[in-house]
C-alpha cells in the first residue's frame, strides 16, 4: 500500500531551477520517455505519417482525374495513379488525414466518455453504481469490438443525417461508433487507476482535511489516472486507424470518392492483378508506418513514464 513512490524516481532539483513550473515536470517526464532505438524509430514513423497526412495534402486534389488510366509511379505522380486516373499520392495523403482525424476524434470522444464513467465506477467501487456501469460496459464488450462497431453502424445507417442546418456525414459517425467501441477499454483503465489511487494515503489525507469527494476525484485522483489513459491513447489511435481501415474495407466506411487508408487498400486489393502494384503498396506502407509509429511511441511512454506501475494499472 505504501509502495507508491518506488517507481517514480524523484528528479534531482537544482536550486537554480527551484520554482519549477508544473509543466516542466511533465516535459521532463515525456522527454525521458523517448529512449532506445525502437522509441526513436517510432518517433520517426510517427513524424513521417503526420508529414504525409498534413504537408502531403497541400495543393493536391485527391479526386481529380489527372491521367487517362492507371499509370506507374513517376516524377509527376510519385505513387502512380489509379484506374480512374487519380493521383495515388494525393489520395494516400488525404486518406491518411481522414484516417487520422477519425481516429483522433474517436479516441478523444472515447476518453471524454470513458474517463468520468470509469473514475465514477472506481470511486463507487463495490457499490451499485459501479455494478451498473461495469455490467453495462461488459455488455458492450460481449461482442468483439469490431462486430460491435459494425452493428452500431448498421443501426445508424450510412445516409447523411440532417440536424437543422448541419449534415452529419459518415466521418463523425464512424468516429462516434468507434468511440463507443473504445469506451469500455478506456473506462476500465480509468477505473483500475482510480481503484489504485483510492488506496493511496493522500486520498484519506484529503478526506480528513475535509476536501469534498467530488473534488478529490476531479482534482487529485484525476491527474494520476490520466497519464496511463493518455499512453493508452496512442495505442488506441493505432487500433482506430486499423479499425477504420477495416470498416472501409467492408464498405461501412466513408462514402466515395473520399479516400481513407482503409478504402484505398480495399480497392487496391483487387487491382493488384492488373500488375498495378503501386495501388496497394504505397497506401499500405503509409498505414503500416503510421500504426507502427503510434504503437512504438505509445509503448515507449508506457514503459518509461509509467514503468511497472503502468503494467499493473493495465492488468
Amino acid at each position: 500500500m505504501t509502495t507508491t513512490v518506488t517507481s517514480i524516481e524523484p528528479a534531482p532539483v537544482s536550486p537554480l531551477a527551484a520554482p519549477a513550473p508544473k509543466r516542466w515536470h511533465r516535459v521532463r517526464e515525456w522527454r525521458a520517455a523517448i529512449q532506445g532505438f525502437a522509441s526513436w524509430l517510432g518517433v520517426g514513423c510517427l513524424a513521417f505519417f503526420l508529414l504525409i497526412a498534413t504537408v502531403g495534402r497541400i495543393g493536391r486534389d485527391p479526386e481529380a482525374l489527372v491521367t487517362l488510366g492507371a499509370e506507374a509511379p513517376s516524377l509527376a505522380h510519385w505513387f502512380g495513379t489509379d484506374n480512374l486516373g487519380r493521383d495515388v499520392f494525393a489520395r494516400t495523403a488525404s486518406g491518411a488525414w481522414t484516417s487520422l482525424l477519425i481516429s483522433l476524434s474517436c479516441i478523444l470522444l472515447a476518453v471524454l466518455i470513458a474517463v468520468p464513467l470509469g473514475m465514477w465506477a472506481g470511486w463507487r467501487h463495490g457499490k451499485r453504481t459501479d455494478d451498473i456501469i461495469m455490467r453495462g460496459l461488459e455488455t458492450m464488450q460481449a461482442l468483439p469490438m469490431f462486430i460491435f462497431v459494425m452493428f452500431i453502424i448498421m443501426l445508424v445507417g450510412s445516409k447523411p443525417i440532417d440536424i437543422g442546418p448541419f449534415t452529419i456525414g459518415m466521418e463523425p459517425r464512424i468516429a462516434v461508433c468507434l468511440a463507443l467501441g473504445f469506451v469500455p477499454f478506456f473506462a476500465r483503465i480509468a477505473r483500475a487507476g482510480t481503484l489504485v489511487e483510492m488506496q493511496e494515503d493522500y486520498v484519506a489525507g484529503l478526506q480528513v482535511i475535509g476536501v469534498k469527494q467530488r473534488r478529490i476525484l476531479t482534482r487529485e485522483i484525476y491527474v494520476n489516472v490520466m497519464p496511463s489513459v493518455w499512453v493508452q491513447c496512442f495505442l488506441g489511435i493505432a487500433i482506430a486507424i486499423f479499425a477504420e481501415g477495416g470498416l472501409s474495407f467492408l464498405g461501412l466506411g466513408v462514402a466515395p470518392p473520399q479516400a481513407t487508408l482503409g478504402n484505398l487498400i480495399a480497392e487496391a486489393g483487387s487491382q493488384i492483378i492488373g500488375g498495378a502494384w503501386w495501388y496497394a503498396i504505397f497506401p499500405g506502407l503509409v498505414m503500416v508506418i503510421g500504426i507502427l509509429g503510434f504503437n512504438l511511441v505509445g509503448d515507449a511512454f508506457n514503459d518509461n513514464v509509467l514503468g511497472s506501475r503502468g503494467e499493473a494499472e493495465r492488468a
Binding site: T2, T4, I209, P227
Partner: peptide, 19 residues
C-alpha cells in the same frame, strides 16, 4: 474536522505525487 487533524504515517504517500 477542523477540531482534530491527522498526520499520516508515510510522508511519501501522504501527498498527491502529481500536485
Amino acid at each position: 474536522r477542523r477540531l482534530i487533524q491527522l498526520v499520516s504515517q508515510n510522508p511519501w504517500s501522504a501527498l498527491n505525487r502529481r500536485r
